[in-house]
Simulated assay, not measured.
Amino acid sequence: MAFGLCAAFAAVALVGQVGFAQQAAAPEKPLVCPPEGFSGGFTKGCPQRQFAYPSDIAAMMAALPDKAPATPQKVRRVLVLGRAVTWVHTSIPLAAKMVEYLGDKTGAWMTTITYDAADINPENLKQYDAVFLASTTGEFLDDPKDKPVTDIRRKALLDFVKQGKGIAGIHAATDCYHKTTRGATPEAAPILTGTWPEFNEVMGGFFKFHWVYPTLITVKIDDPKSPLTSMFPARGYEIVDETYTFAQDSYSRSKVHVLTSVNYAKMSAEDKAKEPANTKRTDGDYALSYIQRVGQGRVFYEAHGHDEKVYFSRPFVAHMLAGIQYALGDLPADDSPSTPASH
């Protein structure tokens, strides 16, 4: 999500009443879509751009690792899905091209990119070894006019990973299938609920809050021995991006193996105070990337990836390469659940 210009991108006319006489609806304001070159996020209603700018692709390609950390066990195929139903990130096409060019350069996999949820079906998924969710948002698999089709797609994705394949997701892949219900009073904490619990569990949690772009975040390396973090210095690193956090009860170290997290102790009091008090995590645990076993399959998730410039970082792109190879089953890694004591 991004809030700066988003309020200007969609407007809804209000119809009012005075006494018993209904007034005519105010003229609807024209939809203002992001100008060319805009980066960040915007609400639905504008066409979702499906191409990355050449300058961004060039900068991303300069950051590509020379080789993959693991040799593929066989020819691998990755399906990238970039459908966003609510918030649309301009970095989605670049994330998709990152996956494609990582596979092409290292030989680790072949890539197909789609923005059509209909491609998530049992027959089509048979040819793929992993699905990459590129900042998908909202009910990205659903057809609101066809529940049977929606049910088939949902089951296909869950069966895909449970039966031995992989899912990798970046940034808004956790901003899906959840809702917020206001508390009984203004002071009461809102109720955050996952609307597709099985998917929420597969992804390790769902979105609650973010520190807006550009916020400087110090990243802690929770598992410096993992092949998925070998590209980072053990002391951690700094990144400027939009940083997601998860609803208190949706994410837990007792379920996922945390690779990196926000070094909360190094955050300024000013930035800490930006998180709403009535939904603030009580454990100070803000995971950024993690892996987990789901049935016979594997899941990798990275919370950063909002802004295009993140994809220009060689260590970050190498982290994504390793994570996808883990999801494919080619890069073994300790994926046992972390424990609160290790934080």
Rank of each mutant, 00 (worst) to 15 (best):
A327P: 09
A134R: 01
V310R: 06
K44G: 11
H89I: 01
F51K: 15
T218C: 01
D283T: 06
P197R: 15
T137M: 13
L158D: 06
F132A: 09
T245G: 10
D129S: 09
D241P: 02
G204Q: 02
F160A: 05
L216H: 14
V32P: 05
L328F: 00
G103D: 02
A273I: 15
W196T: 11
D143E: 13
K179H: 03
S91N: 08
S268R: 08
T195W: 04
A318Y: 01
G169A: 08
M267A: 01
V299R: 08
A2M: 08
F246V: 10
Q50P: 02
E302A: 15
V294D: 09
G16F: 08
C46E: 06
P69E: 10
R154L: 08
E28P: 08
Y290Q: 09
A303P: 04
G166A: 15
Y177E: 12
L64N: 07
I152E: 14
A25P: 11
M98H: 03
Q73D: 10
A10D: 08
A134N: 14
K67V: 03
A52D: 06
D175F: 03
D335C: 12
G82E: 14
S230M: 03
S226L: 02
G305F: 00
G40W: 04
T245C: 06
L94I: 07
L31A: 06
K179M: 14
R154D: 12
D223T: 14
D116P: 04
R83P: 03
M267G: 00
D223S: 15
V85F: 01
L94V: 03
F42L: 08
S338H: 05
M231H: 05
A269N: 13
L288T: 02
M110L: 09
A2Y: 13
K266N: 13
D223L: 04
E28M: 15
M320A: 09
P332A: 10
T43H: 07
P72S: 10
T112C: 12
D159P: 04
R154Q: 09
A318K: 07
A318F: 02
T90A: 15
F246I: 13
P47E: 06
A8F: 10
D223C: 06
A117H: 05
A303L: 02
G297I: 10
S254L: 14
Q292F: 02
T218M: 04
M98I: 02
A333C: 15
E308K: 12
N124D: 07
D271T: 13
